[in-house]
Design a protein around this nucleic acid. Structure first.
Lengths: 150, 150
DNA sequence: TAGAAAGCTGAAAATGACTTGCAATTGAGA
DNA sequence: TCTCAATTGCAAGTCATTTTCAGCTTTCTA
């Protein structure tokens, strides 16, 4: 993990930015988080460790971490963004129930292949992606009608 | 298109809701829109046609149109949702440049196959999905470094 | 290694998309 | 036509995120 932190330091410096304790602290906290996180949760986590870091700083650091490839936004729920650490794995897809808001993750290797192919075939640099599927979960799906005409 | 409107009317009635001129007007305006749209644009479009429809009504109608399968949210940019008409085609993917905010569409049949497979293999009812890829477009990609350690 | 310039930070105010409360209006069944 | 619940527009409210700003670090230079 320290190599990662060191890499982040280099990344920050290369961009002509200052390497501050806040930025490092935020990254460390994120790296210690196993699951998805949102800004609020991260803020409270830091606060509970007596950190004085403000939400503003978290909001300001997140784009850097994304551009550096350390984290990715994985989905949005209720107008709020959720992130996770980018490890070796490519991110997965998220199913979100529009009724009960349940979020369920899934992996499918074909998605990763597809994304990789698309990147290779393009002149773009892919940093992160999300596949969000909205619909009704098994327990919410009854009583639904669609608009099949005729 | 009238069959669609008629279908929408049935859809609304089946749900015990009232079929109002506002709801129809909103759907008609959306159907006449070729491209992606957001609430603000739609509102201004309606306004320019001397419609008195408020933004609140648009915001209240959109979830209905989504549940009915008439439109889908296709991506978010700058905290704003963008929608488009659901025709026969399954939606495509969107590439969004994190620097210049350019949005580019792409189609890949493999994505549709994948989504269809996932739906068949699950107990979920898929209503809409988005695949958003964030990164750097060709003209913005220079000067970038990643954090490959060693 | 002091001093300064440029970046950062926290706190608070601002923003902006979206939602909600409310009084007036309208659709739809009786 | 009557009646009542659903709907509408407007204005006020929410809430995540962004910005402002004054004070504080980091880093560069002499």
């Amino acid at each position: 993990m320290d190599a990662l932190i060191e890499g982040f330091k280099q990344f920050i410096k290369k961009r002509g930015l200052k390497y501050t304790s806040e930025r490092e602290e935020i990254l460390r906290e994120i790296l210690s988080t196993k699951d998805h996180f949102d800004v609020d949760t991260l803020y409270l986590q830091l606060k509970s460790k007596n950190s004085k870091i403000s939400k503003a700083s978290i909001y300001r650091t997140i784009p850097l971490l994304i551009e550096g490839g350390y984290i990715q936004e994985v989905y949005k729920k209720g107008g709020q963004s959720y992130y996770e650490v980018t490890l070796n794995k490519r991110p997965h897809l998220h199913f979100i129930c529009i009724k009960c808001s349940e979020v369920k993750e899934a992996y499918d290797p074909r998605l990763n292949e597809l994304i990789d192919d698309l990147e290779r075939a393009s002149n773009y640099r892919f940093l992160t992606f999300h596949l969000e599927i909205f619909g009704l979960c098994p327990s919410c799906r009854e009583g639904k009608v669609s608009h099949e005409t005729q």
